[in-house]
Simulated scan of single mutants.
Amino acid sequence: MFDRVRTVMTFALDPEASARWWGELLGVPVQVDVSDAGDVYAWVETGGVEVGFHPADDERNPRGGSPVVYWGVADVDRVRERLLAAGCEHHRGPLVIGPGRRIAQLRDPFGTVVGIEGP
C-alpha cells in the first residue's frame, strides 16, 4: 500500500526561516513558494524526502501538531551532538528501543521535534 515517505510537512511560525536553518545545516538548497494570499511554503530535499515547512495556524495546523519523523543515522551520538551544536534543544533520549536500535528526539530552534534513529 505505501511505497516510501515522499514529504514530511511541519508547521512553523516562520516557514522560510525554518527551511533556511535546515538547509544550511544539511548543506542543501532551500525552495520557497509564496501563494497569492502571501503564505510561504518552504522546503528542502534530503535523502529523497521533501521536508516542508507550512505556516502554523492554530485552527487548522497548530505548531507541534505534526508527527515526529525519525531519520536514520549511522551514529546517534555524533548526529545528536551536531544538532545540539547547531541550535537544537534536547527533547528525549537517547533511548535503547530494541537490540541494536537507539533513538533520540531534539527540538529545532523553531519548535519542530525531529527524531534520529540508528545503531
Rank of each mutant, 00 (worst) to 15 (best):
P55H: 01
R20W: 03
P99K: 03
I97C: 08
S35G: 08
G118K: 10
R60S: 14
E117S: 13
D77E: 14
I116C: 01
A12G: 04
D77R: 04
H90P: 03
D57M: 11
G52A: 15
V79H: 03
V30Q: 02
P62I: 11
R20A: 10
V49M: 01
G87M: 07
I103R: 10
F2H: 12
L26C: 05
R107A: 09
R4V: 12
F11E: 03
V28S: 00
D75G: 13
F53T: 02
W71Q: 10
V49P: 00
G118E: 05
A12K: 02
P119V: 09
R6Q: 15
A37H: 10
A104S: 14
R6F: 09
H91I: 00
Q105C: 15
T46W: 02
C88M: 01
Q31P: 00
H90W: 13
T10P: 03
H90Y: 08
A85V: 07
H54G: 05
D108H: 03
R101I: 14
L95P: 00
A74Y: 00
A19Y: 04
D39H: 09
E45F: 13
V68E: 01
L106Y: 07
V113P: 03
W43V: 04
P29S: 04
Y41K: 01
V79A: 06
T7G: 02
S18V: 00
W43S: 03
V68W: 08
E45V: 15
L83W: 11
F2I: 12
R6H: 11
D58V: 15
R102W: 05
G118F: 08
R60F: 14
P15K: 03
I97P: 01
V76A: 06
L106K: 03
V69A: 14
D77P: 05
Q105H: 09
E81D: 14
P67A: 15
A42L: 07
A85I: 08
P29K: 02
D39S: 06
E89S: 15
Q105L: 12
N61S: 11
R107H: 07
P99S: 08
R6I: 14
R102C: 06
G48A: 09
G87V: 04
P109L: 07
V114R: 13
V68L: 09
V5Q: 06
L25A: 07
A19G: 01
Y70Q: 09
G72F: 09
G47D: 05
T112V: 13
P55C: 09
W21I: 00
D77C: 05
P55Y: 11
A86D: 07
A37P: 00
T10V: 15
P119C: 04
M9R: 10
G93C: 06
R92F: 14
V76T: 05
I97N: 00
L84F: 07
G65P: 12
V32E: 05
A56F: 11
E50S: 11
A17Y: 05
V32S: 05
D39T: 10
V79R: 00
D33I: 05
A17S: 05
R102V: 04
S66F: 03
R4P: 03
A74F: 01
V73T: 13
L95E: 14
D39A: 15
L95S: 13
R4F: 02
E50H: 05
V44G: 01
M9K: 10
D33K: 12
D33G: 06
D58R: 15
R80K: 12
